[in-house]
Design a protein around this nucleic acid. Structure first.
Length: 237
DNA sequence: AACCTATGCAACCGCTCAGGC
DNA sequence: CGCCTGAGCGGTTGCATAGGT
């Protein structure tokens, strides 16, 4: 386990030309950003740096908020239902991750993209098809008898015939639901159920109550690679 | 115990789009 | 209409970790 300090990271990642940091976010940076967005709302990302002193570009702030700090994020492994939905949506619209994310509340485009690419690789490796029975790519649905070189949506190629051929045997038995603890239960128990693997424990164990006026991240921890650790409440008070 | 490889995920990069001027 | 800027999107990379040898 490398034991880099945040200061080391800071030095390493600071760009000589613009003095902006790159690389993993620290808990302190998260706290600053979360506090700022809570007060001012998302948007105007390029002025976040000026107003908070964060050494991060607007783009980086937006991404961090969108993918990790947003209070409505739902963390943990994709449920069977979500997996199914992703596959259906992909068949329908191709690699439109952001659009897919709109239809999967609490999931980010990045998460969906990572999920899909991981799944794609996995299924490719073991020789399974892209879509399960009953789900067809849009163009295939229009041409049920054709063997397509590519699967398209509009003018875009959303998959290749090899992907389709390899991954079309997706079956329910291979798509068992992952033992994901609902967020509400996790919040109550504050520890994962026995059937949950450590890597499946939602990183953000405590989410703000619905309707809570301000976002107060209580505990954020346990990324598999330990990039993000703890966001103490005190930072928000 | 040490090394190697595979995996998953966070973050960056480059491009496109939309809105304002 | 063209330019500029901010925001968003999709592809890709890099790193930490787990598992295998």
């Amino acid at each position: 386990m490398s034991s880099f300090s945040n200061e080391d990271q800071s030095n390493d990642n600071q760009s000589q030309e613009n003095n902006l940091r790159k690389g993993p976010w620290t808990a302190e940076e998260d706290a600053i950003l979360a506090e700022y967005v809570t007060k001012h709302g998302p948007g105007n990302w390029n002025i976040v740096q000026q107003n908070t002193g964060l050494l991060r570009c607007g783009k980086s702030c937006r991404l961090r908020w969108t993918n990790h700090l947003r209070p409505d994020l739902r963390r943990g492994a994709f449920t069977k239902e979500e997996q199914r939905k992703v596959i259906e949506l992909h068949a329908e619209m191709g690699n439109k991750w952001a659009k897919m994310a709109q239809k999967l509340p609490g999931r980010t485009d990045n998460e969906i993209k990572n999920f899909w690419n991981t799944r794609l690789k996995k299924r490719k490796r073991i020789g399974l098809d892209l879509y399960p029975d009953g789900i067809k790519p849009v163009s295939d649905a229009h041409n049920p008898n054709t063997t397509l070189a590519t699967y398209t949506h509009g003018n875009e190629v959303v998959g290749t015939s090899s992907q389709h051929a390899m991954l079309n045997n997706f079956s329910n038995t291979q798509n068992q639901p992952l033992p994901v603890q609902p967020i509400s239960m996790v919040r109550e128990n504050m520890k994962p159920p026995q059937e949950m693997q450590p890597s499946e424990v939602p990183r953000q164990l405590q989410l703000p109550e619905a309707g809570r006026s301000s976002y107060v991240p209580d505990v954020v921890f346990n990324t598999p690679n330990k990039r993000l650790r703890v966001l103490p409440n005190s930072m928000f008070q």
